[in-house]
């Protein structure tokens, strides 16, 4: 029943965040980019919960609540945008929408 060091939890959060960041930077499929953004939000939530557990406070979990609500709203709008992109350009490549008009 030894407590988990906070550094290890934060290391997990950093690893997940970096993986998500690499996913956003490296992939051009917009569905993968959305998934990577979810991973990064989740990693931020992990960091909050680890910090909250370190101090035995509920605030970290409350922050995770808000991150969860943000992620849910973001994914709803993001997936609607994916549908729009696919409908207009018939691809899910993010570079297809790199040109602005006007």
């Amino acid at each position: 029943m030894t407590a988990i060091p906070m550094e290890h939890g934060l290391a997990l959060a950093v690893a997940l965040f970096v993986l998500g960041l690499v996913g956003v930077l490296a992939r051009r499929n917009i569905v993968f980019m959305l998934m990577s953004i979810e991973i990064m939000l989740n990693a931020a939530g992990v960091a909050f919960v680890v910090a909250g557990a370190r101090w035995g406070a509920a605030d970290g979990q409350v922050m995770f609540f808000f991150i969860l609500a943000t992620a849910a709203a973001e994914v709803a709008v993001g997936l609607a945008l994916v549908l729009q992109l696919y409908h207009r350009f018939h691809t899910v490549d993010a570079d297809a929408a790199s040109k602005m008009r006007g």
């Binding site: 996913g23 990577s36 991973i39």
Partner: peptide
């Protein structure tokens, strides 16, 4: 978690 996330990317 890290392994599965790596495989996702």
């Amino acid at each position: 978690a890290v392994a599965a996330t790596l495989l996702v990317v």
